[in-house]
Design a protein around this nucleic acid. Sequence first.
DNA 1: CCTAGCATGTAAGCCGTTACATGATTGG
DNA 2: CCAATCATGTAACGGCTTACATGCTAGG
Lengths: 179, 179
Amino acid sequence: MSLKHVILTLIHQAPSTGYEINKSFEQKIGYFWHASHQQVYQELAKLKKTEMLTCEHKPQTDKPDKKIYSITVKGRDELRKWLHQSLPEKKYKDILLVRLLSADLLPLDKLCEQIQKAAEFEQHRLDEFLHIQKQCYSDEQKKYLSALDKRLFINMRKGILLAEAELAWAKEALETLQN
Amino acid sequence: MSLKHVILTLIHQAPSTGYEINKSFEQKIGYFWHASHQQVYQELAKLKKTEMLTCEHKPQTDKPDKKIYSITVKGRDELRKWLHQSLPEKKYKDILLVRLLSADLLPLDKLCEQIQKAAEFEQHRLDEFLHIQKQCYSDEQKKYLSALDKRLFINMRKGILLAEAELAWAKEALETLQN
DNA sequence: CCTAGCATGTAAGCCGTTACATGATTGG
DNA sequence: CCAATCATGTAACGGCTTACATGCTAGG
């Protein structure tokens, strides 16, 4: 229900192509919203058909042609409406926690391996965030953030706090399981 | 892809009815895996058709009839196979963080309200977990946990750690936004 | 009397994944 | 020469949501 609005948000910030939007999902946006490139192109087509976006075809000679999407008044209205709606309830899905329940079919060492691997993934994530924090948000820089940069900073902080919590949990879990 | 396995896990622990499984999703399982009752009934039908489950019809006089599902050898094999597969990558979806990006269309006070409300929701979740922790896992009780209870304890701890991280983030976010 | 609990589903439609598809240019 | 980057999609299928549907009993 919301990929639509994520895309509208991105194009509201600046007109862009499907390719650029996909780049965002692979990089920074991907940290808090996942989407595949196929899904993005399908959604763009839908948003064009419902007149939330307009599309300008731009031929290129050395590279494949581009389609540059811009948001319409109708699209901006839709986005504004959505932003003011209250948040739907979160739908938790954590496979590792499900696996923990299947006690006797998954041996302890295999389970610990999986937790370990998940922890490594989170550590990697955390390192990336910490790197960004160091690069872009020194104490000095933090004093002069624009409204948008401030909000980006807050997003990154959530990435850090959640990754840290995941890591703390993994450590604790392994200790409890192996004692 | 995994509701199937969540249900198999539950029925592997003990034969049950669709109604009971739905109760689990509304209560403890719901903390880390969401599913609607329609989805559960549909999945049960599918699992029966593919011979992962058998079904015993049990008429009742004072209440509606029941269908008691049990796991088959094939079902257990499928579950075991799934448990040994490596975890798929997590797909993050956090609407609040998307809304933070749409700077100029959502006024600061509205945004803060939404963060506040999300924080209250997390606080409620945390309180529930802390209540369970107090009831079921005193220091004394923790010494004598069965293998399964230990794993349940670990699950609850994740609920606590993540809820705390969400709360810490919300507090920090509100401060940053309002300074 | 009305609500909550017990107990089960079907149908339509949208959302998301997986597989398939093309083809030029640039840099190592 | 090979891989990566640029740039776009279609088709089939499966997962999940939303709306609709039924009907009895016990308790306040």
